[in-house]
Design a protein around this nucleic acid. Sequence first.
RNA 1: GGACGGCUAGCUCAGUUGGUUAGAGCGUCACAUUGACAUUGUGAAGGUCAGAGGUUCGACUCCUCUGCCGUCCACCA
Length: 880
Amino acid sequence: MSTEFTMAKAYEPSGLEEQLYAAWEASGAFNPDHLPDRNQQGEPYCILMPPPNRTGTLHMGHATMLAIEDVLARFHRMRGKKVLWIPGTDHAAIATQVKVEQLLIKEGIKDPRAELGREKFLERVVAFAEDSAKTINHQVRKMGSSCDWSRERYTFDAERNAAVNRVFAMMFEDGIIERGYRVVNWDPQFQTTLSDDELETKETTARLLTFKYDADFPIAISTTRPETKFGDTAVAVHPDDTRYQAFVGKTLDAVFCGKKIQIRVIADPAVDPAFGTGALGVTPAHSMIDAELAERHGLPTIPVIGRDGRLLLGAVPEAFVGCTLSDARKMIEEALQAQGLLQEVKEVPQALPIAQRGGAIVEQLPMKQWFVRANKPFALRQDTLGKWKKGDQVTLKELMREAVASKQTSIVPDRFEKIYFHWIEHLRDWCISRQIWFGHRIPVWYRGDELRVSEGSPGEGWEQDPDTLDTWFSSGMWTFSALGWPNEETWNRHRAYHPTAVLETGYDILFFWVARMVLMATYAIGEVPFKDVYLHGLVRDEQGRKMSKSLGNVLDPLDLIPKYGTDAVRLSLMVGTTPGMDVKLSEQKIEGFRNFTNKVWNIARYILSTTNADAAPSTTTTLADRWLDARLATVTRSVTEKLERYQFSAAAEELRDFTWNDLADWYLEIAKVEGGKDARLRRTLQTVLALWHPFMPFVTEEIWKQAAPGSPFLMVTPWPMAEGRAEEPVFTALQSLVTEMRRLRAEQRVEPSRAIAFSIVCESELWSQLEENSAWIKRLVHAEAITRTSSLPASWPVATQGATSVGFDPAGALDLAQEREKWKKELEATVGYIASLEQKLANQEFTAKAPEKVIQGMREKHADAVAKRDTLRARLAEDS
RNA sequence: GGACGGCUAGCUCAGUUGGUUAGAGCGUCACAUUGACAUUGUGAAGGUCAGAGGUUCGACUCCUCUGCCGUCCACCA
């Protein structure tokens, strides 16, 4: 026993974790350039951390992300790859600005933007963002993330701004960024445009009115939004609709609630003749669908709603000017009613578009904005995706489809590929300009009618576009902008890391972000941004509800870590889940894993305190040893394979099974009896620690200090190789023996310690024969055990020695009659099973068609069942 | 309205190309317990795999339909 041995009785993570993290970081192992030589030779392996928004603090979703990415990083690092995991944060333009505005309003500044002005306001936002970044980085460290802080990035730093400007200029030159007057989503609360993906729908009911514009108008229309009808320029009907044939092509004058309007009657197949009156009032200014109709038919666009969400001066009669939309809606309904124009009112369900941030009802307004054209062909700047050559004409949509269709990017789980393709099919032009202040400024300058794309001012008299870019425009470039593009020197240094190995994120931002990264990388670099996409599920509470402040069911990683330890929190987020499935998290679950980390600690404590580090390897190998080695080899192989396939839960469960059941509960007990296993125990412990390290970096690294004194960090230790034959016949035979011994013990035929019982087997010199004929040996050992133990326990020296240590309680004798009942039942079941097997094997149809493997398997099962039946019969006969 | 997913033990979930007695963790129950660990050990109970058809020698697994629950997409005005 080592005199320096010091391990607390229970694992106490707090304090230790900070020290370990600091030591790892100081060692340089987070930075690929400082990894050992074998990693320098290894394949580059890069993960970009999805940058958390600088809006405050991290939640359990972030914790899940960090846990999984850290497992990947540590696993591949140990396997010898040159691992680069880049941390970073996202300025999250609108989200951050909104957050700060709300804070300022709480401080008593009623209208922060108006009162502070652009410069002052931005100062406040920047200060807030800096603060958030600090908090976030602290939390990322707490999770044990082995990311390279020397390469920390921010989506809004100078280098990323250079990337944004470059891509913008490229796309502008290629004609796929355009400025245009089109109907866009407008958030009246925050006074900015929004992309289609920043909308949510709210289920409400609306009053569907059916009416005529005026008494002389020949066609009745239906709408839930009468207040927009001041902007109608057409009525559309289906081309085959005979009711309205006579009017198609004519332009009619009407007076709608006091406003003169001109209505052209058009025919378009998009109109559903069965809905309402079959005639649709077309409002090109305030409906995307109507805007498309208007474009096809060359209709004028008359906006009637202003940016404040109220009716516009000049566009509506005086009585309505400045009215809110809901007031106007009521007034119009009353007016129509009074004039006798209203034919029908119906309550209908309606999906209202609302802003994802803020929840305001989003209006559709025509505005001059910047767009990325998804469907417009352009000439490629380089060979792309191995399919297109430089100069080929393609659309962004085609690039996005090809990246996944060609499997250059695979999505795990693959059902999300379907969802991805579906989204791409419906992809429309992407409005990228925002009227908020916090974000990448649009690199466009105006002078009179002139327009120029430029990073800095082109000269005297030029003014920059006041708008900023959608935050996803910059985060879409993350994989290559973070690696230094377009700075040649930095980019060349990191070129080998792109495409990155895997993008790991929640499925909720598949469209926002994942798809846009594919767009940006295939466009700008000509290759996919990542080889794999791993999507984890959302973290929910124990009842499956979303965690939210209002429900009060939020679990905060920073509360849980001091309580249970980081390792336990990490495990609880990865075990018991599959890719893309939501995780139901409870404190009870975390507690279970805390218990497990403590178990690992105590396994190590026992081994390290009872074995000698300098002991020579044992010259004899017992059955138990071979059994352990075989199991470990199988587990090592299997865990490695599972981690390669992103099966984190399955890998951890298998390891837990081995660690707890095989190593702790079985082998350690046997070792107490057999002795002389110091070297094997220590070696096994080291392997187990290494296998666990990606999942539980802290407890394993801490034990490693004692388990492998003087060695480098476990973090940079080579991943275990599966040694020995995993599929030894002895292994399966022993498993049966284990069961058999348990039974003997239960029968009071052997001394009750499973370890002692097992040691009989190990002592006996049967194991070479065991490999040849396991069933025969099994029966033999069974008989052997019975004769040896029932006749003369005293002649069994091992048993008497070990008995006290494992707690033999003679008073706990079993009720033999009850046992006999069990045997009888089991015998019955076995006989039935044998009969069914025999029947099946006699079935010629089956034997003719079933593969040899299956039939062979059944024959073996049959033999086993027969043996079991005989044993049971013999036992019953003997006891009666 | 369209699409996708879930329905397996009391609870949370595995189940990898269909292979024949369906698995784990937690919980429950019984027993044990002072030298690694009560943050423990040994064992037990518990499932006609949502339902109905079909394909097959064989279906939790593939196909069709139905029923709940959930998610995403969708401005039938």
